[in-house]
């Protein structure tokens, strides 16, 4: 078990394991997402107040959850990068960043699409919206730093420091924004946090969350594999791989 785990730290083995896992994860993602979407959009009952427009939560809520989860993955991989300098961790970290940024963007867009009919406006400076927006800025800063540095390994370590600084800051930003929003008293009555959600709606929501998680795992592994191939382009196993593919 431990031996298997240690071997995972070598780019070559990680690449092989990921290559084998990818089709399975990909098909699982597809199945779970189709089940979740059908359940959420067709089977689940309409809300008695919001009618059918509440159904956007089946995309919005999982995306918002993933936006935080992916940052945690990124920071975890960043910590491993700094401590053990594993190339695999660097690849995972860099692979996660754009995905996290897209999840954040998706959560913001679906939220504002839902906000237009419900709150009467696309955007309010509510605490959650604002901290999600700042999270997006943190992702974009990370990506900008990655593309600005030429040396991949230096860029990865710099990004790791930035991700960890961000992790320390995210709770502070979140609570300060919350304090700010309650101080200024937003113009609309917000939030879907209070009313306890019915099981008929919760179940498809959780299925969708699982689908998003699987989707992240699939695309994350594909991206991490690309990162490894680019970073290791001169090493023996990549050349071997390329030679075998050609023939």
């Amino acid at each position: 078990m431990w031996l298997w785990f240690h071997r995972l730290a070598s780019p070559k083995h990680f690449y092989r394991v990921a290559e084998r896992l990818n089709p399975w994860l990909g098909s699982a993602t597809l199945v779970v997402l189709i089940v979740g979407l059908y359940w959420g959009l067709v089977i689940a009952p309409p809300d008695y107040e919001q009618g059918d427009s509440y159904r956007i939560i089946f995309v919005h809520v999982p995306a918002a959850w993933m936006s935080l989860f992916v940052y945690a993955v990124m920071a975890g991989a960043g910590a491993v990068t700094l401590v053990w300098r594993l190339k695999v961790a660097e690849a995972v970290m860099r692979a996660a960043a754009p995905l996290g940024a897209w999840f954040t963007f998706l959560a913001l867009v679906t939220g504002s699409l839902w906000g237009k009919p419900m709150w009467g406006t696309y955007w309010v400076w509510d605490a959650r919206l604002t901290s999600e927006l700042i999270l997006l800025f943190l992702y974009l800063g990370f990506i900008a730093l990655q593309s600005a540095m030429e040396d991949r390994r230096t860029a990865a370590r710099a990004g790791a420091v930035l991700a960890l600084v961000g992790v320390v800051n995210i709770p502070i930003i979140h609570y300060s924004v919350e304090w700010w929003a309650t101080l200024h008293q937003g113009p609309t009555v917000t939030k879907l946090d209070a009313p306890s959600i019915s099981l008929t709606m919760l179940a498809p929501l959780l299925v969708m969350a699982l689908g998003f998680l699987l989707h992240f795992a699939t695309t994350g592994l594909i991206r991490a594999r690309c990162e490894l191939l680019e970073g290791e382009a001169r090493s023996g196993w990549v050349r071997e791989l390329a030679r075998r593919r050609r023939t």
Partner: peptide
Amino acid sequence: LLVLPLYV
């Protein structure tokens, strides 16, 4: 770009 979000 890096530090302004942290200044919030």
